[in-house]
C-alpha cells in the first residue's frame, strides 16, 4: 500500500503511522471556562472516546514519521482501503501557510 504524501509523493505505507478519525474536533476549555464541569467532561469524553467508526469513506490522521514528519489528513475508504485524498495538517507547512493566509 502506498500513500501519496503531499510533500514527498507516493511512499510505502510502512513509513506512516496511524492515529485515527480526524473528524472529532478537540474542544478547548480554559481553566475559568463558564461551562459546568459535567458539560466540559462530557465534551472532552466525546472527543477522546467516542467514534463513528464508519464503514466507508473516513477522514483520518496519518503521520509521515518515516519521512518528512508531517501530519496528514487522508480521506480513505475503510472497506476498500482506497485513498481518495491526502492533504497536510494545518500546521504542516505553516511557514508557507502563514505567509499566504494571514
Amino acid at each position: 500500500m502506498r500513500i501519496a504524501c503531499p510533500f514527498c509523493g507516493e511512499r510505502d505505507s510502512s513509513e506512516f503511522s496511524y492515529l485515527g478519525d480526524a473528524s472529532p474536533k478537540r474542544p478547548n476549555f480554559a481553566v475559568d471556562s463558564p461551562n459546568s464541569p459535567a458539560e466540559i467532561e462530557d465534551a472532552v469524553f466525546d472527543y477522546v472516546y467516542l467514534r463513528a467508526n464508519v464503514a466507508g469513506d473516513m477522514r483520518e490522521y496519518w503521520y509521515h514519521g518515516g519521512g518528512c514528519r508531517s501530519w496528514l489528513i487522508a480521506e480513505r475508504n475503510t472497506v476498500t482501503h482506497e485513498f481518495k485524498s491526502v492533504t497536510a495538517a494545518p500546521g504542516a507547512g505553516a511557514a508557507l501557510a502563514g505567509q499566504a493566509g494571514e
Binding site: 500500500m1 510505502d12 505505507s13 510502512s14 503511522s17 496511524y18 485515527g20 478519525d21 467508526n53 464503514a55 473516513m58 483520518e60 480513505r76 475503510t78 472497506v79 476498500t80 482501503h81
Partner: peptide, 13 residues
C-alpha cells in the same frame, strides 16, 4: 495492521 478497516484482509508489512 494498525488502521481502521472493515476489509477482512491485510497487507504485507
Amino acid at each position: 495492521d494498525g488502521y481502521n478497516s472493515y476489509a477482512q484482509r491485510g497487507n504485507m508489512p
